[in-house]
Each structure stands twice: as C-alpha cells, then as structure tokens.
C-alpha cells in the first residue's frame, strides 16, 4: 500500500463505487431502452452489439491495468483490475445470453450446430467458456487457495481477448476498421506484456547520466 494508514480510503469508498456505477451505464441504457421501446429499428441487433462491444472494451481495460501501473508507477490501478474483469464477464455473459435466448430462441440443436460449424461462433463460445473459471476464482479466498496457480490460470485472459477480437473480425461483412482498432489496442497490450522493458522507466541514475 502506498498510502499512509490514517488517510481516507478514497479508493475503496469513492473511486471504486464511481467506477462500478460508470460500468453499469451501458447496461442501464439498454434496460431503459428495452423498457420504453427505444432501441431503434432492430433492438436485437442493438443489444447484441452493445453487450459485445462493452465485453471487449472491459476485457481490454482489464489488460491495460498492469501496463498502466508500470507506466505511471502507481500501484492503485491494480485495485480496479478485478472489478473491470468481472464487468467484462458480465457483458460477455449478457451477449451470450442474448444469443441463446433472443437470437437462437432456445433452439439448442441449432446452437450446437452453429458452434460446431461457424468459426466466429466457435471462438466466441470458447472465449466465454474460458472466462467462466476466471470469474469463479476472482475472490480473495480463491486467490489464496490457488496460490501460484492462480496467476497462471488468470493468464488465460490474454487468450480470451485474442478470441474476442477474432470473433469480431470474423463476423463483419466488409468494413474491418472497427475490429482492427480493437486488434491494434490488443497488440500493444500484448507487446508490453511480453516486453515489459518497453514501459519501464530507466532508473534515476541512468537518466541522470543520459542527461549529461
């Protein structure tokens, strides 16, 4: 902890609740839109795209916390990571549920066939499946119980993000711009994951030497 014990725990009582509220805004807008019938000409498409977009965005935000800590030398970022990760799971699950219930209308045989034969559905399903254990083991107790295995397990999140971007890339008809933006962001995040040196500030002494 980089704050004195007596300071007001603003991160816990202010920053986190604010983030929690903000992360629920897209969901709140959808619920409101569904309630008053204001989701446009194609409500199913609106819900599918919104939940999918936010699932992917929260995934990338989650992955950005560690690099941000390295970049800013502020460890506070990590306290938001779990919440962001769980919101990624929340939106991806809503996306999946929308598909099961409203798109496929609970036609189970159809769904299995789709998962088997349509690659973009396959990778989307696998991504959700891989997120499930991460969400289930996100508690402090599970973290303690799993010990060093926890970290290894949670590295799966990188694979999930890659599958998520692939899912998006493979479903668009012609204009790849939007999925490619997500792909570029993910690429940068993966790069700093495997080459953390890119972000590390050189030690003070070296900088002083350079300056001379």
């Amino acid at each position: 902890m980089d704050r004195p014990e007596h300071a007001f725990p603003w991160r816990r009582f202010v920053a986190k609740p604010l983030l929690f509220g903000a992360a629920l805004i897209p969901f709140g807008l959808l619920v409101h839109g569904a309630a008053v019938g204001d989701l446009g000409a194609n409500p199913l498409e609106r819900v599918t795209h919104t939940t999918g977009d936010w699932g992917l965005r929260f995934l990338l935000l989650t992955l950005a916390m560690t690099p941000l800590r390295q970049l800013t030398a502020w460890s506070g970022w990590l306290t938001f990571r779990r919440m962001l990760g769980l919101f990624a799971f929340f939106y991806v699950s809503l996306h999946f549920l929308t598909w099961i219930w409203l798109d496929q209308e609970l036609r189970w045989a159809n769904m299995l066939a789709d998962i088997a034969k349509r690659p973009f559905v396959t990778v989307g399903f696998v991504a959700w499946l891989l997120l499930l254990p991460l969400a289930l083991t996100s508690t402090r107790a599970m973290m303690r119980r799993l010990g060093r295995h926890w970290k290894r397990l949670h590295r799966t999140v990188y694979a999930v993000a890659v599958l998520g971007v692939l899912h998006f890339l493979w479903l668009v008809k012609a204009d790849l711009l939007e999925p490619l933006i997500y792909a570029a962001v993910l690429f940068v995040l993966l790069l700093v994951r495997w080459r953390p040196g890119l972000l590390k500030r050189p030690p003070l002494s070296t900088r002083a030497l350079d300056a001379r």
Partner: peptide
C-alpha cells in the same frame, strides 16, 4: 449464409422480445 442461418428473420420495428 456461411456465417448465419437464413431460416428466420426479424421484422424491423418489432420489440426486443418478439419472435422471429
């Protein structure tokens, strides 16, 4: 279509919970 079924469709303007 290789990526989705053409057996059913949505009619624009119908609600979120309406059937295909």
């Amino acid at each position: 279509h290789p990526r989705w079924s053409q057996a059913r469709h949505r009619v624009l303007g119908e609600g979120l919970f309406s059937r295909k």
